[in-house]
Amino acid sequence: MKPVHWRDCIPCFDSLTEKIRIGKFITGSDIRTAIQRCTAGHAKSDDLVLGVPSSSIAYLEYLFHRAEGPYSPDFGWIAMIIQIFFKSNPDLQNLINLNAADALANMVLNKRGRLKFLISDQVELGIILEWWERFGLIPVNSRQVLDAILNKPTIRDRIENGDPLLILRLLDVFPENEEEVNPYGQERDVLIQAAGTITKPPSERRYHHVFMKAQKAGRDIHSLIQEEERRILPMQTKRNRYLAYLVKNLHGNCCQICSAMGEETTGPVEVHHIIPLSRQGKDLAENMLTLCAPHHQAVHAGSIIVKKEDETVIIQTSDKRWSFALNNRVNSYV
């Protein structure tokens, strides 16, 4: 008989989690008793795995899956419940500590692990590593997670063979280790094209999922942008790529310079920081423009000058000048 699976207990686990959230269950023994009630009658729910009841493992798996990842709206409060649960279960902490780096590696690789946070980029990994320590688990750093990934022979072979989707995924999560995860130095656009029918890299598919879920819940894109701007990024990261994704959607995935010039945008757009991050510019929507690749290159080459005056963006070429309001798509010719 198969051990108890969290999917078989979702209604009861949902109810239990809500009670913990509102403070009805505050002790570890109360939670464990409630878990046992939820799994009563399921096969092997009382079995022990290194001293940990299968029912407790099932509930932890449920919490990880429900939390999804840091970009998901429920992650914060569910992570706090995971923290409470771990700290009341030392045996469970010990069990996870046995192969923590490998468990996190499987999350990055989006494998079907029993514990599964969704990790799409460097920000999500960094936040999860911070929470990992708050859970009372042995601290793990991104280097250890990458080593656990690269120690998998099949992964090394796929990197050596230039697997575009895998390399894109690893570049998003470990941008500072590009030489290791992208040994042939392939450009991002080349990797995306090589992926064939998969038109979006894994991180963008994740952003799309979170965004669509928020929209279905009635969330406004402006509130989502404000929420992301309040996010405290892990120390090693400077860019919130989900925020950039939201800004691109705010502007309809159109190049704002093309719109100002009365032209139609062709191809994907990129986010440009008006004041570069290297010059203490802020990673905020008010400092971002969405640009097509040719105009982005022209801005960096200096043939198009972009500057901001209050809430207006000024674009200037050698013979023309345009302006438009920063956070909408209504452009005015000057």
Rank of each mutant, 00 (worst) to 15 (best):
L168Q: 08
M80C: 06
L291S: 08
Q236F: 06
V210S: 00
C254M: 13
S120C: 15
S303D: 04
E124K: 05
P11C: 12
K2D: 13
S88K: 01
D30Y: 08
S332T: 10
V190W: 03
I274R: 04
H272E: 03
Q297Y: 07
G162A: 03
V173E: 01
S72N: 14
Y184V: 03
I81P: 06
Q280R: 11
I274G: 02
W6D: 10
H65D: 12
K238R: 15
I81R: 07
G126R: 13
R32K: 15
E228F: 05
E133G: 09
E18R: 15
T199V: 12
T197M: 08
H300F: 04
N249P: 00
D121A: 11
F117S: 07
A325N: 12
P90G: 05
D220W: 07
E286Y: 06
F324A: 01
Y71K: 03
R231K: 14
A217G: 08
Q316C: 06
V108F: 06
A105G: 07
A43E: 15
I225G: 08
A79P: 01
R188D: 00
Q93M: 12
L170S: 00
S15Q: 14
A58K: 09
Q280L: 07
K216Y: 10
M80R: 15
R231L: 12
G113T: 14
R219D: 11
R37V: 15
